[in-house]
Design a protein around this nucleic acid. Structure first.
Length: 256
DNA sequence: ATGACTGAGCATCTCAGA
């Protein structure tokens, strides 16, 4: 079973990219982030024609997540448990399939909105770790994947791309990511490639892609039972070389 | 000496992204 995540930076601008990628890779589940539209504008017919059901948690202009599935799923959550009722940002969807809980997430960047914006990121990370703890306490096989907007270690960003005060690398950010690792979750891509740079994002600016000056910010965290089942986990770099690409590439996890 | 991106929207600039 292949489960993938992809921040597409507008699903309407990337409809053809996603359709071609689905036809080529044929994952069972694809979680999308930054769809940047409401459900009514989502190009569901295109993906349904390829055999994928679409579950959309939309939002106008910003954020927005979705899951495309070619196996039966049950949507269990359309927002991250614990957020205030008046939180309007669409950043989380969770499903159950074959006894596995799979959460697709778009974690706040944290570099805009001043200290309040950064505090929102940290609060969101606390609730995500709480959600992980609840699933693990119930012995639920769990995968939490998406755009974490966190470079866990210095090797996860090319030299010179980020300052030490960037919200993607600040110590408070990394501490909260580590809390999830300490719960017992496995960083799938790092388990496959324990050392050395491996990126999932390259900025549109300053020739970041041709110079391979990227970041590793899209992750899949697996409970121990799923980590044991893992066959492969890797970003699909080829997508960054497409015409008019997203600045992120898909990350694919294969379970046996 | 130095270039310099992309998408959405009550748009021809601003916000957000990272």
């Amino acid at each position: 079973m292949k489960i993938a995540t992809w921040n597409v930076n507008s699903v309407r601008s990337r409809e053809g990219h996603v359709a071609r990628w689905l036809a080529r890779v044929q994952p069972e589940l694809l979680f999308l982030q930054e769809i940047k539209c409401e459900a009514a504008q989502f190009p569901a017919l295109t993906f349904e024609a390829l055999g994928y059901r679409c579950e959309i948690v939309g939002q106008k202009s910003y954020n927005g997540v979705a899951v495309l599935s070619r196996i039966p799923i049950e949507v269990t959550h359309r927002s991250l448990p614990g957020l205030p009722a008046d939180d309007t940002q669409s950043r989380y969807v969770e499903v159950r399939t074959e006894g596995v809980a799979v959460g697709g997430l778009y974690l706040p960047n944290g570099n805009s909105g001043g200290e309040a914006g950064y505090a929102y990121k940290l609060a969101w990370m606390e609730l995500l770790a709480d959600r992980a703890a609840a699933l693990l306490d119930a012995d639920t096989p769990t995968m939490l994947l998406g755009d974490y907007n966190v470079c866990p270690e210095d090797v996860d960003f090319a030299p010179g791309t980020l300052s030490a005060t960037d919200a993607l690398v600040r110590p408070e950010t990394r501490a909260r990511y580590r809390r999830m690792i300490y719960l017992g979750l496995t960083d799938a891509v790092r388990a496959v490639q324990p050392a050395g740079p491996i990126y999932t994002f390259w900025d549109y600016q300053a020739g970041a892609w041709p110079r391979d000056r990227g970041l590793r910010i899209d992750h899949a965290l697996l409970s121990a039972d799923l980590a044991e089942r893992m066959v492969s986990a890797m970003p699909d770099r080829t997508e960054r070389g497409a015409e008019q690409p997203s600045d992120h590439v898909p990350v694919v996890i294969e379970l046996g």
